[in-house]
Write a protein that binds this DNA or RNA. Sequence first.
DNA 1: CAATGATATATAGCTTGCTATGCAAATGGG
DNA 2: CCCATTTGCATAGCAAGCTATATATCATTG
Lengths: 152, 152
Amino acid sequence: MLFNGYLSAMAFHKERSAGFLANQMARLFAKGLHERIRPLGLAPAQFMTLLALWDEDGLAQSELVQRLDVEQATMANTLTRMERDGLIERRANPDDGRSQAIHLTPRAKALRDPATAAARAQNEAALADFTDEERQTFLALMRRAISAMHGD
Amino acid sequence: MLFNGYLSAMAFHKERSAGFLANQMARLFAKGLHERIRPLGLAPAQFMTLLALWDEDGLAQSELVQRLDVEQATMANTLTRMERDGLIERRANPDDGRSQAIHLTPRAKALRDPATAAARAQNEAALADFTDEERQTFLALMRRAISAMHGD
DNA sequence: CAATGATATATAGCTTGCTATGCAAATGGG
DNA sequence: CCCATTTGCATAGCAAGCTATATATCATTG
């Protein structure tokens, strides 16, 4: 009775909810990044995928799924759009008929510098008035929240 | 030349990118919240909208757009799904033929306590090993990044 | 070697975002 | 009062998430 009364009275303030703020922040990051890379013909998830492939070309879809921590179906659809847009090619893997190696096209390789510069600019815009220490703290806290939710 | 060489060599590490971490963190928050409120028949954006309406019933769509900071089209679609699911009713506004007042159904009112409890549990899961001070710091840093990107 | 189980992708269907448009109702200036 | 502008919503169309399911290939094991 007292307990239920307490719960009912205990307002949930979205401004004080980490989840609410995380959602809003991520949308603003994505929107800002999208504006910056749109002239390059890229969308945010395509950029994230390119980050992994610029680092190591020829990965299998399953490896991209691991590195970017998205569901397999999400990655499959993103790769289909990237193939459509001339960013990647899916090449058969001679050792395993199930998997394919994802290879960058010359166009995708050429986008590396302008696209990473755009992403850096967006991060900088978000953290403009943060000190170096605050930036480190912020990244560390986000990593801890991610680990806690990821279960590791 | 030196500058271009520097840029090319300057790898972009997603693990050190605030935007990348923000995206991953927000997805984990949304996924965890969704699992917790799915038994109630709710999805995350519906819950966010309910938060505003539990606070003040009968708001116009335009007011919800302001409070939740999403695009008008996004809110219109979310409200359509909520109406379909029996969470809200759109009632004509006698003072302005363009707008409608969004009213909660009894079902939506009854979900307040269990749904906010679920959201609190998700926030707690994410911040389980944070001290009180770290929680305050984290929220403050997210608010500052949001303000910086929002342009205010 | 055949059957079983595991792995790699694909596809269907849904929610939540966004931009871009369209339209009707309200408002404000001449 | 009338026209132009503004405001409030709806809709179309797309990207990117997710879950659930299907399919084909590999691997294991009896």
